[in-house]
Nucleic acid binder design. Structure first.
Lengths: 346, 346
DNA sequence: GTGAAAGCGCTAACAC
DNA sequence: GTGTTAGCGCTTTCAC
C-alpha cells in the first residue's frame, strides 16, 4: 500500500481522486490549483482541504502537456566558477514565494553539451529559460526565444527584441580596473583574458574594450597595451602568466577578466616567487566569495551578481506573464578594494 | 512559420507528423525511439531518416506520462562548496553516451527548500534521484525510494535496502588526518566540524568518530581531544577558530571537516597573524581544486569525488534497469600532501 | 513485423 | 459558479 491516504498501490494521487474526495468536478480542482477565475470561497475551502488530506501534488508532466510546468530552466556554463552561485542566489530570491522552481543544467564548458541541455530543458516544457554565460550565436537564441521566454546573463545584445538580458556594464568594469590600478601607482598593467578559441564569451571582450580604452586615455599605445590570452582556458592561466612575467618589459599589475582566472593568476604569480601586492598587483572581476579569504585578499570589480540574478528572474517572470517587448538590465560595477593591489611604494 | 521543416506555426514536430512523413504508424516511430523489440531494419531506416529530416525531438513531458523521461534529478545541498562539482563531473561521466540528462536542484542549505525540490523533481517524473549531502530522515528517503530509484551521496546507511549509496570511508578519512598530522610532528590537533543545529550531516559525524578514535589510539583522552563546532555553519568558522586559538592550550593543528570549511580556517588563522604550517598546521577534507592554489596549498584528505559520482550514477542506472537489491559503494580516502602541514621544526 | 486504439493526468473550451 | 469533455504527445497492449 503505497499511499497511506488512498490505499492505492504504485500510483500517485490524481486530480480525479481529489475531485471525488471533495465531491466536486476535476475542473473545479484544476481551477483552485491555478488560482483561476470562477471558484466560490466555499468550493475553494473544500478542495483545499481534500488536497491537504490526500497529500495531492499535481504532475508537472501532465500539466506541461496543456499549460505550464512552473519550472524555470537555467543553463550554467560551468559550476566551478565561484561567481555563478551569486547569480543563482539572486534568481532564487525572485522566485521565492512563487510557484516556480529553477532546475539547472551544467554545460561544463562544452558547446555540444550546452545545446543538449537547452533542448532537454525545452523538451521538458520549462516555462522559461535563463542562459548564463553560454556562447551560442544570437541567431540560435532568437530561434529558442520563439519557443520559450529567454533571459540571457553574460551576453550583451542591447538590440535584441525577442529576448531579455541582465548584465553589468562590462566595458565600464574593464576601465575601472585600469583606473584603479594606475591610481594605486602601478605603471604597466596587463590583462589576462579568454583565448579566442574558447568561444565568444561576450563579457570578456567587453572588458577588454574597456581596458583598452582606459589604457589609451592614460597614454598607452598599441605596443604597450598588453592583453594575453589563456588559449586553453583555466588550465592555461599559469603558463600565460609565466610568459608574461618572464618576457620583455613584464607588467607590474595583472587584471584577470574573472575572479576564477584571477585566483589562478595569484597562485601562478606567487609560485614564481613574486610578492603581491609589492612586486605585482592583481585585480579580478566578480567580487566572488573567495576574494575575501585572507590568503587571497583579492581586489575585484564587483558586478553585483545577486542583483543581476534577481533582475534576470524578474524579467523572465514578466515575459512569461505576457510582456512582448524586450528589456535589458544593466548593473553598475564598482571596485571592491582589498590587499592584492595595495602598493606600499608609490 | 515557426518550424521550417513543417511550416506549422507555434508548435513542435510531433510523433504523428514523423509517422506520416515516414509512411508508418506512430507505434512504429515510438518503438524506434526506444530501441524496442519488433522493428525491421528497413522500417528503422525510414523512421530515422524522417526524424532527422523533420528535426524531431520527443516531448519528455508526454513521454513521462506513460514511460520514462530520461531525466535524472540531482539534489545538491549547496552549490558553493567546491567539492560538489567533482561529484557532478563523475555523474556526467557515467551518463555520457546514454540518453539520460541530469537536472539539478540546489537546496541552499535550507531543509524546506530541499523538500520542495525533491518533490518538484518527482512531480516532473524524473527516472531517478541522486541526493547529495542532504539531511532528511532515513524514513523519509525510504518513502521516496518507493516512488523512484534513489542513490544517496554523503549519507551512510549500509543497512538500507530500498536505496543505494556512494561514499568514501569517512571514519577512515578522519583517522587518516590525525595519523598524518602526528606523523608531521604536530602535538595537539583539534577538529572543526558542523554545529549540531546545522542538521545531521552524516559524514561530518563519521569523520569525528575517526578523528576521536585515532586520537585515543595516540594516547589522547576526552579532555585533550578537541572538537569545536561552527554552530552557525560556514559564517561561524572564523569565530570558532579564534576561540580555539585564544583559549587555553591552543591547538597546533586544525582539521577542517571539509575543504570548504578548512579554507575559512586558513583565512582565519592567517588573519590572526599565525604562520601556516610553522605555527599551526591545517588539513582539509575533499581535496577540491582550490587546495592546489599556491596561496592555499592545503593538505587534504582525498575522498575521490569523481569516482563517487561515477559510481552513484552507475548504481542509479542499474536500479532504473531493474535491480531490486541495495548496493553501497565505498571509496578509499588518501592523504593529498601539500604545504599547509609541512612542519619545518620537528 | 506492424498498426489501431486506449489512456496517462492534466487544462481549457464550452455548456449548463 | 460549476461540470462535461476533448484533447495535449506520447507508450503500450493487443489484434492482425
Amino acid at each position: 500500500m503505497d499511499n497511506p491516504a488512498t490505499g492505492r498501490a504504485g500510483g500517485r494521487v490524481t486530480i480525479r481522486e481529489v475531485a471525488e474526495h471533495a465531491g466536486v468536478s476535476v475542473a473545479a480542482v484544476s481551477k483552485v490549483m491555478r488560482d483561476a477565475y470562477g471558484v466560490s470561497a466555499d468550493m475553494r475551502a473544500k478542495v483545499e482541504s481534500s488536497i491537504a488530506a490526500l497529500n495531492y501534488r499535481p504532475s508537472a508532466a501532465a500539466r506541461g502537456m496543456r499549460g505550464q510546468t512552473y519550472t524555470i530552466g537555467v543553463l550554467m556554463v560551468d559550476i566551478k566558477n565561484p561567481f555563478f552561485p551569486l547569480l543563482l542566489d539572486g534568481i532564487s530570491d525572485s522566485l521565492a514565494g512563487t510557484q516556480y522552481v529553477p532546475l539547472i543544467g551544467i554545460g561544463r564548458g562544452q558547446p555540444t553539451l550546452e545545446t543538449t541541455i537547452v533542448h532537454a530543458l525545452i523538451d521538458r516544457q520549462v516555462d522559461g529559460l535563463i542562459l548564463i554565460g553560454q556562447r551560442m550565436d544570437t541567431a540560435v537564441v532568437e530561434v529558442l526565444a520563439r519557443e520559450v521566454p529567454v533571459v540571457m546573463i553574460g551576453h550583451h545584445e542591447p538590440g535584441a527584441t525577442t529576448f531579455d538580458s541582465a548584465n553589468n556594464d562590462d566595458e565600464r568594469g574593464g576601465a575601472l580596473a585600469v583606473e584603479y590600478l594606475l591610481q594605486q601607482g602601478y605603471k604597466r598593467p596587463a590583462m589576462i583574458t579568454l583565448g579566442k578559441d574558447q568561444g565568444r564569451a561576450d563579457v570578456s571582450r567587453k572588458r577588454e574594450v574597456g581596458f583598452t580604452r582606459a589604457m589609451r586615455e592614460a597614454g598607452f599605445d598599441d605596443r604597450t597595451i598588453r592583453i594575453a590570452e589563456a588559449y586553453e582556458g583555466i588550465d592555461d592561466v599559469t603558463a600565460t602568466v609565466r610568459s608574461l612575467i618572464e618576457g620583455q618589459e613584464p607588467p607590474d599589475a595583472i587584471f584577470g577578466w574573472a575572479d576564477y582566472y584571477a585566483l589562478e593568476v595569484l597562485s601562478a604569480v606567487r609560485s614564481l616567487g613574486l610578492r603581491v601586492p609589492e612586486d605585482i598587483g592583481v585585480i579580478g572581476y566578480d567580487n566572488s566569495p573567495p576574494c575575501a579569504f585572507t590568503q587571497n585578499d583579492l581586489t575585484s570589480i564587483d558586478q553585483k551578481g545577486r542583483e543581476i540574478g534577481r533582475n534576470a528572474a524578474r524579467l523572465l517572470l514578466e515575459r512569461i506573464g505576457g510582456r512582448m517587448t524586450a528589456e535589458h538590465f544593466i548593473a553598475s560595477p564598482t571596485v571592491s578594494t582589498r590587499g592584492s593591489t595595495r602598493r606600499k611604494t608609490k
